[in-house]
Design a protein around this nucleic acid. Structure first.
Length: 254
DNA sequence: AACCTGCCCAACCGCTCCTGG
DNA sequence: ACCAGGAGCGGTTGGGCAGGT
């Protein structure tokens, strides 16, 4: 087949993006959109491959990106959505406005997966760091990017902005524990650990609603054409999940 | 104070999916 | 129906940093 390498690695820059590159990319996308990622770097005068530009935009420069630590609600949503969807990070990201698949993936691998590991006591999950490093200060120029309405932004924004607005500041990973662990801990240490019913009903309702049109791919799948079996699968997992949830609430506290 | 260790996250890689010719 | 090219996705990596010794 002879697929051309994504970046014909001649003279193309790699590694971390500079603020200047960010600025150029944002300015170009503001002006011209990103209909063709492959051609974009040339048009914008960037020595990057299109893939790299796309990744940078999606994961970092998009105006609707929400920076900062995941809230407890978001983490729990990730856990539950992962239950339902597996490693389909983009589908999970579509449910979490402002969060990217990459970010969710990172959080999953660094925190949430460990939480769910049953063999390790929760006490081991205490972080070494008291404060996450970069999250506090807004990343480079993204903060100063003032976008008008970007028609190309495929923000999977949905009614549950409540999710994203409930910014209960930063997540305290030391205190946080999974639903499972919490069940085991009898929720004791978490006086305020109580997911509102409305949260889950919203989240789940969304899952149901979306599965009827373009499930999971929210804004990112322009075609919005899910696999024929997606709805069935979704129903299955949804039922399974809801069953599991109700079972969990009935668990005897250990 | 210096070194070591482990964590975090941005970015890369390679594969699959999708679309147009 | 087939092929090629582009986009999207998930897995992985490595540099930088914070905490520990």
């Amino acid at each position: 087949m002879g697929r051309a390498p994504c970046c014909e690695k001649m003279g193309l820059k790699r590694g971390p993006w500079t603020p200047e590159e960010d600025r150029i990319l944002v300015a170009h996308i503001e002006r011209h959109g990103h209909s063709n990622w492959r051609a974009l770097p040339k048009q914008a005068g960037l020595l990057r491959c299109g893939k790299s530009c796309r990744l940078r935009w999606i994961n970092y420069l998009r105006p609707d990106i929400k920076r900062g630590n995941f809230t407890r609600e978001e983490e729990d949503a990730v856990i539950q959505l992962h239950h339902m969807l597996g490693n389909r990070w983009s589908a999970i990201a579509a449910r979490l406005p402002g969060r990217t698949d990459n970010e969710i993936k990172n959080v999953w691998h660094t925190h949430l997966k460990k939480r769910l590991e049953p063999t390790k006591p929760a006490t081991q999950q205490a972080p070494k760091r008291k404060q996450p490093k970069k999250q506090q200060q807004p990343p480079q120029p993204a903060s100063e990017i003032v976008m008008l309405d970007d028609p190309d932004t495929t923000a999977p924004v949905s009614p549950e902005q409540s999710l994203s607005t409930s910014t209960t500041t930063s997540t305290d990973y030391s205190a946080a524990s999974s639903l499972e662990n919490n069940a085991a801990d009898s929720f004791t240490s978490e006086e305020d650990y109580q997911i509102e019913d409305s949260f889950w009903s919203e989240t789940l309702a969304m899952a149901v609603d979306d599965s009827s049109d373009s499930f999971g791919m929210g804004g990112e799948d322009a075609s919005g054409a899910p696999a024929p079996s997606a709805n069935d699968d979704m129903d299955f997992w949804l039922k399974l999940f809801m069953q599991a949830s109700s079972d969990m609430q009935n668990l005897p506290q250990i």
